[in-house]
Each structure stands twice: as structure tokens, then as C-alpha cells.
């Protein structure tokens, strides 16, 4: 399959007078049609700069970007606007502008000099609004809807623009948890149902890993490219966090704060209660697997007639029973500080 986007020795960065600041150097990547690509990296690493270069909002320092085999520098402006659409981090604030009017902006590359919308344009606008599930909000003003809804409206605008490629800069930046997931999932659906090729940058590795076909990890001096699972297996994901206090658990696929255990306790029990008790103990600083077999406490999670109990056995042999994890951790916390 012929790639839809290709870069050859692409260097991106800023040119300020005679000085240049190269942020990403000599990048060779290709993107296939219908892929959802998440671009991950720290702030200031060059995610936005890369996206701005791919969308022709700024020129590359060196190298080329090819779309459908054609250098983007040679695209006429209007033709490029029918090929690639862009959603930025910027929050659009406009008085007296409805969702429908906002989405209709996407039709501008297709309208005449006066910007008149034809029936076909109106149809495309309605369809785009439907695709993001905002039919019932179409006539609301964009200042009155939530951030998540506004972001969906901006995505609808790029759908109305009817481009093969959609590029989004931090589409989840200002959103709450459910909206973050919904927006990224919407992008995922668009690649499946509409064969769109979508690139988005994000801080939310968790969400990107769950939905994206590919991740581009941008690190100082390194650029990694692969399916999220490949990157995990190559230990690339854990490498990103080597310098930080975060730790990525390859087996569970989750992040946690790196802590030095304050003590060990032996945990017995089964099922979900066991997992969550372990999490709670880790949260207050206890590890449940001691290499020396030296444990400060024994905790047993038991179930008696549909009620959970936590039996704690202290080193001196005495025992205590708790009815919730909260009670257990409240009891255990002072023993840590006294150590």
C-alpha cells in the first residue's frame, strides 16, 4: 500500500532571522491511509512544531513532506485545504456563532469568492454534525456549550472540510476524563468508518495507548515509532519515564509513582478485593513481595456472608479485624511515620 504521508530527512524547528533552532532532525516516517497516530512527548519537545510543519502552517527547515507522493510545498493553497485539515489547541471564542455556523467554516475551501454555501455544502455540514453526535446542539451558541462539545464541534468542522487527513494539536488538552476518552475514541471511529488518516498530539499516554494504531514517541535525540504494544514490549515506554519519578508497569500497562517501600506485608486473599487491597497498601508505601521473606504484618482478605473483612496479624501475635480498606490504612499509617 502506498503511504498517504511520507517525510524524507525532515527537520523542523524555528527560523528567527538568521538563526535557526532545530527541534526534530532528519525524520523519515510514513503514514498509511486510515491510521490513527498519537504523538507523545514532553512539553516543548516539538510535537506542535512537527504538526504545524505537516500542515504547512510553517515551512520545514530541511527535507520534504509528501502527501500522496506530492511535495506539500507544491500544493496550491486551496487544494491543500481539501487534503489536510487542522484542529488547534486554541479555544475559539466568538459571540453570536452557532455550532452549525462554526462547522460550516469547514466548507470554505469549496465555496465561491463570496463564501456562499450551496445545498451540497449544507448537506456536508449536517452530515459532519451528525458524525460527531451533535445534532441536538447544532443551533446552540459556541460560547454556551462545554469544552468537550466545542472540541467535538471543531472536529466536525474538519470533517465538513472533507479531507483525507486530519491533524489535531492536543485535542484533549482542556477536557475532563470522560471527554478525553470520548474525543479520542471518536477519532478512532473516524479512521475505521470513514478511512480518515488522523494524527494527534497528546499528553495522555494512557488514552493514546488504548486507541491509537501507532504512537510516535518524541524524546530528546530519539524518535520512536510503532504500535503501542510494540513499544511496550521493546521497553520504550518505560524508557521515557526513566528520568522521572513515574514508573511504567509493562505487565499491567499502568503508571505509578516510583516509591521506596517502607516495609513489607504478606497479603492473602483472592479476586478483585485482593488486587485493590494491594493497591491501597502500595499507596501508603508497603510492598507485598519481599525478596527476603521478611514481613512486618500479615493481612488476610476474607469474605463472610457477602461482607469483606481485613484481618491483620501483628508481629507480637495479636490480631485485628477491619471492615474497610480505609480503616485498615488509617490504622497502618501511624506505624509508618513512627519508623
Amino acid at each position: 500500500m502506498k503511504p498517504i504521508i511520507e517525510t524524507s530527512l525532515l527537520s523542523v524547528g524555528y527560523r528567527n532571522g538568521t538563526q535557526t533552532r532545530e527541534i526534530i532532525s532528519e525524520l523519515n516516517v510514513s503514514v498509511n491511509r486510515g491510521e490513527l497516530i498519537g504523538i507523545i512527548g514532553q512539553n516543548g519537545i516539538g510535537k506542535s512544531t512537527l504538526l504545524r510543519t505537516l500542515t504547512q502552517l510553517q515551512p520545514p527547515l530541511k527535507g520534504n513532506v509528501l502527501i500522496d507522493g506530492k511535495d506539500i510545498a507544491h500544493f496550491p493553497k486551496n487544494e491543500f485545504a481539501r487534503k489536510v485539515s487542522f484542529v488547534s489547541t486554541e479555544i475559539i471564542r466568538l459571540n453570536h456563532c452557532t455550532v452549525r455556523e462554526l462547522v460550516a467554516f469547514g466548507r470554505y475551501p469549496y465555496t465561491n469568492w463570496f463564501g456562499k454555501l450551496t445545498q451540497e455544502d449544507e448537506l456536508a455540514v449536517s452530515e459532519a454534525i451528525g458524525m460527531v453526535g451533535m445534532n441536538n446542539l447544532a443551533h446552540r451558541h459556541i460560547n454556551e456549550i462545554s469544552d468537550g462539545e466545542r472540541q467535538r464541534a471543531m472536529i466536525a468542522r474538519s470533517l465538513a472540510q472533507d479531507t483525507d487527513i486530519i491533524v489535531l494539536d492536543e485535542p484533549t488538552a482542556f477536557l475532563d476524563m470522560p471527554n478525553k476518552f470520548e474525543v479520542v475514541h471518536l477519532l478512532c471511529e473516524l479512521t475505521r468508518k470513514k478511512q480518515k488518516t488522523i494524527l494527534f498530539s497528546s499528553h495522555d499516554l494512557n488514552i493514546a495507548m488504548k486507541e491509537a494504531d501507532r504512537l510516535w514517541l518524541i524524546m530528546p535525540d530519539t524518535f520512536l515509532d510503532g504500535a503501542p504494544e510494540d513499544l511496550v514490549l521493546q521497553h520504550s515506554i518505560s524508557k521515557i519515564f526513566e528520568q522521572t519519578r513515574l514508573k511504567f508497569d509493562s505487565r499491567k500497562g499502568e503508571f505509578s509513582i516510583r516509591r521506596k517501600p517502607v516495609g513489607y506485608c504478606q497479603l492473602t486473599g483472592k479476586g478483585t478485593p485482593l488486587i485493590w487491597t494491594k493497591k491501597a497498601l502500595e499507596r501508603i508505601g508497603f510492598d507485598t513481595e519481599s525478596e527476603t521473606g521478611d514481613y512486618a504484618f500479615d493481612i488476610d482478605v476474607i469474605e463472610i456472608s457477602h461482607s469483606l473483612f481485613w484481618d491483620l496479624k501483628l508481629p507480637n501475635g495479636s490480631g485485628l479485624r477491619f471492615a474497610s480498606i480505609y480503616e485498615l490504612t488509617t490504622f497502618l499509617k501511624p506505624t509508618i511515620t513512627s519508623k
Binding site: 500542515t55 504547512q56 493553497k77 487542522f86 488547534s88 456563532c97 467554516f105 470554505y108 469568492w113 463564501g115
Partner: peptide
Amino acid sequence: LLTIKMLNLMLLGENYARSMGLN
């Protein structure tokens, strides 16, 4: 009058205007 469409595009800011094909 010739700038009406351009002005409409400018409402969303220059980046968006450019990404929608405006010179």
C-alpha cells in the same frame, strides 16, 4: 466586499484561516 469571505475565515484566527486555504 471582496474581503468578506476572508474576514469570515479570519474570525477563527490565522492558523485556521490558513488551514482552510486562505492566502
